[in-house]
């Protein structure tokens, strides 16, 4: 029973990683860049929720929903200001810029909110569910349900809608997509918007799970989500989902059965082993370099 309950909280944590990993993998697939500031969007969203709820006194759910708008705005703005001018620059310059943006967002949060951790409002309160001897936290169930619903919606969007198909076209061949009349710049903007919205939702559930947030809150889940995206095969949407969920389960199991202190080391160890045997990740495609 203990095992089952650990599995479920691992699933719930993993689904948060998966939401963040989706943003990494979509931006990588479409803009061909690693947006290392992506994790910090989580923190932006969490602080936005706190401002809306604690400082402005908005209803909790409304505050959390409005934080999505803030994250989308910040994500799109970062893309326009920091990344778009570097569209044809070498990948390393873009990577360094992304790291710079990450530090910028962290410092800005520090400047505005100070370095102390702040309590994150419990915007959802659900009674635990008792099945026999198994107790499942209500928040875990909500987290899992919402993230699974988002993943299904995203998969349908990518596979069935005109915009989703255009995103896949851009991700496969930018020039050919342009020749079809697809605006690559607009597609990249939309990708950043979607990724940031997902990060914001992830941030809210992360806050719900860990209760406290600070200016550096985004960096660890950001890195783990990046690991999850690579683990699943970067650029692959189902890969990011599976990678995120597996990562959450592995982390939780390692905490429960091996050692809390070692859990992160174990997570990264698993990544290294997987990449040794499958360098493109679980669902990654072989990349054909085109001239």
């Amino acid at each position: 029973m203990n095992f089952l309950s650990n599995l479920i909280s691992g699933l719930s944590l993993g689904s948060i990683y998966a939401l963040i990993a989706l943003g990494y993998t979509m931006v990588y697939g479409i803009a061909k860049m690693l947006n290392f500031a992506h994790g910090d969007i989580i923190m932006v969203g969490a602080f936005a929720s706190i401002v809306f709820i604690n400082n402005l006194g908005l209803p909790m759910i409304l505050g959390v929903l409005l934080s999505i708008v803030v994250c989308v705005a910040v994500g799109v703005l970062v893309e326009k200001i920091a990344y778009k001018p570097l569209r044809s620059a070498p990948p390393l310059s873009v990577l360094i810029t992304a790291i710079g943006v990450s530090y910028f967002l962290q410092s800005l949060a520090q400047l505005i909110f100070g370095t102390n951790q702040k309590a994150f409002p419990k915007f959802i309160q659900v009674a635990p569910v008792q099945i026999g001897e198994l107790t499942i936290k209500g928040e875990s169930i909500v987290t899992l349900a919402v993230t699974v619903a988002i993943m299904i919606a995203l998969t349908l969007f990518i596979n069935k809608t005109r915009m989703g198909k255009a995103m896949r076209a851009v991700s496969e061949d930018r020039q050919a997509a342009e020749l079809m009349g697809i605006s690559v710049n607009r597609t990249i903007t939309i990708t950043f918007a979607i990724g940031s919205a997902l990060a914001s939702v992830a941030g809210s559930f992360y806050g719900l799970t860990y209760s406290f947030i600070g200016p550096y809150t985004g960096s660890m889940p950001g890195i783990k989500a990046f690991v999850a995206a690579v683990f699943g095969g970067i650029g692959s949407i189902p890969g990011a989902m599976i990678g995120g969920i597996l990562l959450g389960i592995i982390e939780n199991m390692a905490k429960a059965y091996i050692s809390t202190e070692l859990s992160d080391a174990i997570v990264f160890g698993v990544l290294i082993i997987v990449l040794l045997f499958k360098p493109t990740g679980l669902l990654g495609k072989k990349i054909n370099e085109k001239v």
Partner: peptide, 30 residues
Amino acid sequence: SYKLVSKGMAHVPEGRRIFLQMTVQENLEM
């Protein structure tokens, strides 16, 4: 570039450049 399609120009590039990971119908839809 992308604005030229709606002006009435279509360009089949060298090497065809179809979207290999998309279905035939999705390619046509693009």
